[in-house]
């Protein structure tokens, strides 16, 4: 297919962004449920309700990450190669955490022994928490910039990636996912369990807002290249305001018992945060710090125009279908969790 003068590089910058945004919004609540699983759930039945709240959907949610990775490989191979080889150990730890999480969900309730269940409960919580932390640390490093050499290869070290800004971003991500997950659980639970979850929502919102303020201040002070776009186009600031309004809307909706709108608000806030991240980064996919001229951008790290065009055709055919049946699955499994014999 011929897309004429369409700027395919920018389109793919946005599309890869959409896939990763889909991932953090969707798997974000799965990981968040995992993070609070050990604390907010008391009895075995509570834990089963928590796991079954994400039971039918976590698998599909994780596919957004896999497809995002595939799209990055196809559209920006240089970025895929540099980031995953550069973040080698961090990434292996993330894979390990994700495997553990997946398997813990699958296997926890397959055997009645309390020790078996306690082991997998630990695996589920730890796997989810470590995944969220590492995703945040990785995003922190992408925002802060990593050292690259002239060939676009990572020139830093593993410990060099654990600087305070990246760690703060990691903690913020954990808080964000935990908040998002607790709101999702409100939607899927009822009665006593819901009351228990409800006690966690406001503290988590506050924790996230505190982290968000600190990260924003740190970004303004120490990461000027991310804020440059906002200085040159002040109306982008509207997005930042919208994020704050969306978060402020969450407790309001919960108080009037509209959990679904609270959840939508939380999704909207996360979408806004990813938009801010995208605007701040564009056109850089991997910012080189120091030596910004070596950065990998949507233009110097992309595949050929032909491939970007083919991929766009694939995306235009595939993504609407994916969204349609993903929505149907969420529709089929709407409503409160009821444990039955097919449950986890």
């Amino acid at each position: 297919m011929n897309y004429g003068s369409l700027d395919l590089n920018t389109v793919w910058f946005c599309l890869v962004g959409v896939l990763f945004t889909g991932y953090v919004i969707l798997d974000g609540f799965d990981l968040g449920v995992g993070v609070i699983h050990l604390f907010a759930a008391k009895k075995d039945e509570d834990r089963r309700v928590f796991i079954n709240a994400i039971g039918p959907v976590w698998d599909g949610n994780e596919v957004w990450l896999v497809t995002g990775g595939g799209a990055l490989f196809a559209a920006f191979p240089a970025v895929y190669a540099t980031v995953f080889s550069g973040f080698y150990l961090a990434f292996m730890a993330l894979l390990c955490a994700l495997i553990f999480r997946a398997v813990a969900i699958e296997f926890r309730s397959k055997h009645p022994s309390p020790r078996w269940r306690a082991f997998w409960d630990g695996g589920f919580a730890l796997g989810s928490g470590v995944s969220a932390l590492l995703i945040g640390v990785a995003m922190g490093n992408i925002a802060w910039g990593i050292p690259l050499d002239a060939r676009g290869e990572f020139a830093g070290s593993f410990l060099g990636m654990l600087h305070p800004y990246a760690l703060m971003m990691g903690v913020t991500t954990v808080a964000l996912f935990a908040m998002h997950g607790s709101i999702y659980l409100l939607l899927k639970t009822e009665g006593e369990i819901q009351a228990r979850v409800r006690r966690w929502v406001n503290p988590l919102i506050i924790a996230f807002i505190l982290c968000y303020v600190i990260v924003t201040l740190a970004t303004l002070l120490y990461v000027p290249h991310v804020t440059a776009a906002f200085r040159s186009e002040p109306w982008f600031f509207v997005v930042a305001v919208a994020v704050v309004l969306a978060i402020a809307n969450i407790p309001r909706e919960i108080n009037v018992g509209k959990e679904f709108y609270a959840f939508l608000s939380s999704c909207a806030a996360m979408f806004g945060l990813m938009v801010i991240f995208g605007i701040g980064s564009f056109p850089n996919l991997v910012f080189s710090n120091p030596n910004p001229e070596l950065s990998l951008t949507a233009f110097n790290a992309s595949s050929s125009q032909k491939t970007l065009g083919i991929m766009l055709t694939i995306a235009l055919i595939g993504v609407p279908v994916v969204i349609a049946y993903t929505a149907s699955v969420y529709w089929i499994f709407r409503g409160k969790v009821k444990l039955d014999k097919t449950s986890y």
Binding site: D59, V63, F73, I314, A315, Y325, F333
Partner: peptide, 27 residues
């Protein structure tokens, strides 16, 4: 990446979503 990556991305969009989405209904 230009070649192999597109096949892998197609696998994600056409296959993995289909499997995982309908798996929920199957199970």
């Amino acid at each position: 990446g230009d070649v192999f990556g597109s096949a892998l991305a197609a696998e994600g969009i056409f296959a993995f979503f289909l499997e995982s989405g309908f798996l929920a209904v199957l199970l």
